[in-house]
Write a protein that binds this DNA or RNA. Structure first.
Length: 178
DNA sequence: ACAAGGATACCT
DNA sequence: GGTATCCTTGTC
């Protein structure tokens, strides 16, 4: 996936479709003279203000304003006072949407993902490209549709039955040959 | 089962 | 300024 293709997908496709598309792509981090890389295995889509599970549901705030900005940037925030969540901002400007990266190969849980890649609030609003030292690569791994689980998102029960039950979480269940 | 932990959002 | 809540994890 070249840079232009990636950017077009971030803006052009709907966020749930893009979330699934990100499975099998590689997260790459260059920090302190070394490179950390791993395949994305689990993601969640947060799509628009209507989504009651999304930070954006209550409108634009200091924290979530990055979601309302241009796609192709990182949205990083702190939860529970100790864990950073790594999200890919998607959609057009003023349409708040993002994809939470919940897991990469051998690293399960969104808080662990951020720690693994040495990502904190400093990466918030930074571009997803080489200049920021944190980006996404397509290494040609194909994920069969039959190998993708689609189900409800985690930790959003407060959003109510309708939104908490939406099948907006995707993860690879088998057939990983990266 | 539950504490840790600090920012955030939404009150007064 | 107070406080309930939070897109979680590790240890109990």
């Amino acid at each position: 996936m070249n840079r232009v293709t990636f950017r077009r997908r971030l803006t052009g496709e709907n966020t749930p479709a893009l979330a699934r598309f990100l499975l099998g792509k590689y997260l790459v981090r260059r920090v302190n003279g070394r490179t950390i890389s791993s395949m994305i295995t689990e993601v969640e889509a947060y799509d628009g203000r209507e989504d009651k599970a999304s930070h954006a549901h209550r409108g634009k705030t200091k924290r979530n304003k990055v979601m309302f900005g241009p796609s192709g940037r990182w949205y990083v925030y702190l939860v529970y006072g100790m864990h950073y969540m790594v999200n890919v901002v998607t959609g057009p400007v003023d349409y708040p949407a993002a994809i939470l990266i919940r897991g990469v190969l051998a690293v399960n849980g969104p808080g662990r993902v951020a720690r693994h890649f040495h990502v904190g609030s400093g990466m918030n609003d930074k571009p997803i490209n080489r200049s920021s030292g944190f980006y996404i690569l397509d290494r040609g791994t194909r994920i069969r549709k039959a190998s993708i689980y689609q189900g409800r998102r985690i930790g959003v029960q407060y959003a109510g039955r309708k939104w908490a039950g939406k099948p907006l979480r995707f993860f690879i269940t088998e057939g990983i040959d990266g």
